[in-house]
Nucleic acid binder design. Structure first.
Lengths: 102, 102
DNA sequence: AATGTTCATCGCAAATATACGATATTTTTT
DNA sequence: AAAAAATATCGTATATTTGCGATGAACATT
């Protein structure tokens, strides 16, 4: 990896689609996205209450989704409310739907 | 990982969606899927001609897609023709579209 | 039988992902 | 100012992914 000399030329969109897919490539992150689709927002605490996983683990998964731009965290003391990213999520859906077109 | 004691209870569908996403989580595999969507079939040789990657590397990516059930390889001497998986690919699309519903 | 073609698999090295507990940070409440 | 609550981040261990070259297996051609 990155021992590669030649480079494959990927389009921006292909790279983005792979990024999105990678971020969704874990069942917990699928669950989180589904949850946010339904109830619009939740905070880390909500998730630690539901899942038998360390708080740090959940936080890390949230970070993956956040780094991929799929969710956004709005600080709302005393907690952080996570929502699907206002702009990026619709864009991600759009970009991804192309792959799944008939 | 798998050092975990407690288990999160994921539905079959969530697991499947994550599997699919994971398999698509690399730009080369996105490119391959796109290619197969357009031209229906190709063999490893076609891909090694197009991408500046070792034949073994490409074969490995094909294996990831095959293991995820997204493509199928039909032996057609002297080469192997890869296509989107007749049954699984439509099912995968369907399963995945749910995530991207409005 | 020997050679060539096409593809898969093995073995390796480096990078990344996953999970955890411990600790740091930030803000609220006492 | 001190304590509590909610998250993020760090450090660590293990597993998985990604890439390569080398080798193996299957079949066709010479």
């Amino acid at each position: 990896m990155s021992r590669t000399l030649a480079k494959v030329d990927y389009s921006e969109e292909e790279i983005r689609q792979a990024e999105i897919a990678k971020a969704l490539g874990h069942p917990l992150r699928i669950k989180i996205i589904k949850l946010l689709s339904i109830q619009s927002c939740c905070c880390t605490g909500d998730l630690t209450a539901v899942f038998p996983l360390a708080q740090s683990t959940i936080s890390q998964h949230l970070k993956v989704l956040k780094d991929a731009g799929l969710i956004q965290g709005n600080i709302e003391p005393p907690s952080v409310k996570y929502c699907l990213h206002e702009k990026n999520w619709p864009a991600a859906k759009q970009s991804f739907r192309q792959l799944f077109e008939d």
